[in-house]
Structure formats: C-alpha cells, structure tokens
Amino acid sequence: MTISMRATVRTAAVLSGLALALSACGGGGTDDASGSELSGSVKIDGSSTVAPLTTVASELFTEENGRVQIPVGTSGTGGGFEKFCAGETDISNASRPIKDEEKAACAAKGVKYSEFTVANDALSVVVSKENTWATCLTVEQLKKIWEPGSKVNNWKQIDASFPDEPLKLFGPGTDSGTFDYFTAEINGEEGASRSDFQPSEDDNVIVQGVSGSKGGLGYFGFSYYEENADKLKVLQIDGGAGCVAPSVAAAQDGTYKPLARPLFIYPSAEALKRPEALAFVEYYVGNHAKIAEAAKFVPLNATQETALKQALDALKTQAG
C-alpha cells in the first residue's frame, strides 16, 4: 500500500516536471537569416490605429535585421504614453498629439522625445450600399447629427430632400483616438458627442452594423473602408470648399477637410542612443511611404516629409 502510494507521489512529481520541461523547449531558436550586426529589442506601445503602420515597419525592418526584436503593443494612445513616460517603452504610437499632462509626466521622469508625423489617415463616414439618397454631407450636417443632445433620428431631419428613413448611428468607443479626433473636428470639442449611438472598440462591428441597416451611418479609419468597399458606401465631406471623397490624394494635398488626420510616433531620445533603435527609427523615416502604403494608410506629402526628416535630425542631435 505504502509503496504504491509513494509511486503515486513520484509519478505526480514526474508529471509536473514534464510540464515544466515541455514549456522550456519552446524558446531559443531565433532564426537569423540576415548578416546584420544589430541585435537587441525596441519596445513599442500605444495607439491601435497606428499599430498596423508600426507593425509593418517592424516586419520590414526585421526582414533585414533578423536579430532585432520589435514587439508592438496596443494599449491605446493614452496607455502608450503612460508607459512611454515611465520609461518602459522606446517608441510610443499615437493617433493624436501628446497632451499637456502627458508632457508633464514625461518631463517628471526626464523622458525626452520628439513628435514624428509618419502617415495620414482619412476618417471615412460610411453608409449602407442601400442608401441611394446621400452622397455628400457638410460638416454642419455631421455636427447636427453627432453633437451632444442631438435629437436627429431620421434622415429627413438632416436634409429635406432625404427620404423618411430611420437613422442608425455607429461609431468608435469613447476611448479611441478616432472618437477624440472626430468629435474635436466636427463638434468642436474633444469627446463631446451624443451618447445614444452604438459604440464599438472594434471597427469591424461598425462595418457589420452599417452594412446591415439601410439607414445606418458610421465612421472609422480609411483602411476599414478600403477593405470593405464592396459592402459600404463612403460619403463625400463638404468642409466649406465643396464635396470631397476620402482618398489618398485628397488626404495628402489637404483638400479632404477636416477629417484627414496625421498619425504620430514618439521615439525617446534615450532609445536613439542604442544602435538598433536608431536604425529602426531611421528605417521608419526613410521608408515611410512604402510603410504607409503597405499598411493601407495615406503617405506624407512633401512638406510633411521634410518636417519628418528634420525631426529625426533634431532628435539625433539631442540623443548625442
């Protein structure tokens, strides 16, 4: 009896040991296809909107520098800055400029950084394919729909020529940078929006919602429209100078107003002292157009490009 029970304990011990041993054989094999000298890791976190861009940059960069590890997190712009200013990450992705209180947090920890505009996004206002009446909305009309306390719930309230069709609103959740930007540009105050719309942190839910309801209307980043162009109709926006549809060209030359927005990365000066981080940021800056296109964003225009190169030079000088 005692012997069999001892055997029991021993087998149990072996089992748990096996579980540990199994877990240990996963790591180790980082394949290194390239002959690059660089190694180490560059930690990035921040906006989930900018993440695809930085992810593409990280992938392209590691194709040539196999030993550099570049994990990209998506804690949101605010969450990213919190980690960045605590010195926990090297680069922060942001879909809006850094706020004053975040600047203060960075200053308190001695984190020096610089703002790089790396691409543009065109926030797209979309309706269902079944919507045959609307092709263009003015900023005033959008404001009438989305402002806090708005009672608009039928398309005919937006414009007398529109049919009697209930309006169903979909939009990003209040934590997203897209929501912040849209409310700031359309309603004039960041975060000010009517609250009786269907919010979702997942833009695919907005795609589903709008494509499934005849009177639906929603907004999100350009790439979600591009991927779902067969299911959705995009509206032109009249920002005072005529109707303009969101497109790469319109976002680049500034005619898609006011919903074209810049996307940022914030590298820290401290990180640029490390060769692998410097190489990555230089790669990002040098290939920004290729990266933006691959991630389905709008590349920078000539002015923005010059500004980006200058920002890099300035930060390099600061890093020493």
Binding site: G26, G29, S48, T55, I70, V72, G73, E88
Partner: peptide
C-alpha cells in the same frame, strides 16, 4: 500587463516580452 499584440519571436526566458 503588457502582453503585446505583435511579436515575432518566442520568449526565451521569464523576463521576455
């Protein structure tokens, strides 16, 4: 706790991302 969404390497130790 910082589980990242894009990571192209396996952890090789307990202090890895």
């Amino acid at each position: 706790l910082g589980a990242v969404t894009h990571i192209t390497f396996n952890p090789s130790g307990i202090t890895d991302s």
